[in-house]
Computed example of a mutant assay.
Amino acid sequence: MHFTERHVDPATHRKVVGRFATGVAIVTTRRDGVDLAMTINSFTSVSLEPLLVLFCAEKVARFHDAVLETGTWGVSVLPASMEDVSRFFAHRGRPLNGQLARWPHHRGETGAALFDGAIATVECVTTAVHDAGDHSIVVGEVRALSTPSEESPLLYHEGRYRRL
């Protein structure tokens, strides 16, 4: 099969892939005693043997280098009631010190912060990092799991937060 070179408009691409509804989560790590966190919707299960998951981190985000350095991270899958958390951690350039103080959280086995209100949490140790354009695909082996809440999930679809 031969493909001719074609230009795909980035705005059209964003609109098309935005039709795929995703869950919303916060990924966290702890470096030098400071918690770092970032909103993600690029989180998925990869393998059952071994248990692997992945998320994508934009290379220019300060979280990117921190999570690559620490090699450990936690994911808190957000319920619909935590849209404010998602919005806060999606904002670039916010102060690092005390950024988690507004929401109840605890330390998991890896030391990463996990949100008490999450509908699911996953803790990982990085096993691979793959270059993916302006992002890195971070793959981690699952070390701990929990389902602390039965609330409905927060979703993201067509550039807007949604609820089931």
Rank of each mutant, 00 (worst) to 15 (best):
E150Y: 08
T39N: 07
G71S: 06
H157Y: 15
E151T: 05
D84P: 07
H157F: 15
H106Y: 15
P95E: 10
V46F: 01
V60G: 07
A120R: 03
W103K: 02
I119F: 11
H135A: 08
E83A: 13
T127E: 13
T70N: 11
A61I: 10
N41F: 08
G93N: 08
L54M: 02
A90M: 10
P50R: 01
A90V: 02
L78Q: 14
P95T: 10
L164R: 00
A113I: 00
D65K: 03
R163Y: 10
G33P: 01
L145S: 02
G98R: 13
F3M: 14
R160N: 15
T12V: 12
H64L: 01
C56S: 00
H157L: 14
E151Q: 10
D9R: 05
L48R: 08
E49H: 11
S152Y: 07
A80K: 08
G108L: 01
L114S: 07
A144P: 07
H7E: 05
G71F: 13
M82W: 11
S81I: 01
T147P: 09
E5S: 09
T28H: 00
D134M: 05
D32T: 05
T29A: 15
L164A: 04
F20W: 15
R94F: 06
N41S: 15
I40D: 08
V85S: 09
V34S: 10
P153C: 00
V85F: 01
L96H: 11
G71I: 05
T72S: 14
T126K: 06
V34H: 05
R162Q: 13
R162E: 13
D84V: 04
H130W: 00
V75T: 03
N97P: 13
E151K: 08
G71T: 06
